[in-house]
Amino acid sequence: MKPAPFVYHRPATLEEAFDLLERYGPEGRILAGGQSLLPALNMRLATPAAVIDINRLPGLGAIRLAPEGLVIGALARQDAVERSPVMAQSAPLIAQAMPHVGHLATRTRGTFGGSLAQADPAAELPACVVALQATMRVARRAGTQEIPAAQFFRGIYTTALAPGEILIEVAVPPIAPGWRSVFDELARRHGDYALVGLAAHCRVSDGAVADARLVFTGVGLAPVRASRTEAVVSGRRLDPGVLAEAGRALEGDLDPPADVHASTALRRHLARALLTRVLTRLVGN
């Protein structure tokens, strides 16, 4: 389990990083926290010609409150995000999801942006940023571009990032009054990729769901927004009848894959159980 030979670069500036990305094209892979890339290299699932280590790029690790919301630097370590005092207030969905992202040991190295750019279909953070309608800030030589989170995740390990582009930060809009968040997932062991996870960000009014954003993870090629289900629950009080109707609508929203951990039928079943659980918590106290 040794990686195939590669060249290692550690650019000091974004400009140098762009040079390297241009030089290697698809043969250059960006190294951030390395929690996905290094196993892939060691297993020879990835055999890039060059590894471009962006850990020394300045200013990408900050977590700050800005007029447009909470801005999380792509190189912020996951455990820094988890421990950030502003997170519970400004992005409670992310705060709830963080303990599920791998294990404490991997979170000390793994980065917030790395998890998003990796776009693992079972990862927690992509679902969260989609539910929060966050903005992904992407740097390229020509300047910085903003991509809505909903358009960022394109498929398994596939994002809207074009060759030569680097995700530099994520802006989470301020939480509007009345909006609540619940993240939960079902995993065989704590820290595993979830069999199914749900990032829910909803406006709750008078004990009913007024606006719903329900984004599932682990059930598709990318985060899956359950829009049929959202339509069923929006504006209604969650009685058992509505929950059952929502569960049926979810069947139409999800077409989960089967793998060694769970069949399609099991994932559907668990998604429904999780939906009921999360919605009940959302409207509860």
Binding site: R188, R189, Y193, H261
Partner: peptide, 14 residues
Amino acid sequence: TGTMGDYLVPMAAE
């Protein structure tokens, strides 16, 4: 189940 991700060993949390 040829990796530690797919072969589930019991872990402390559980």
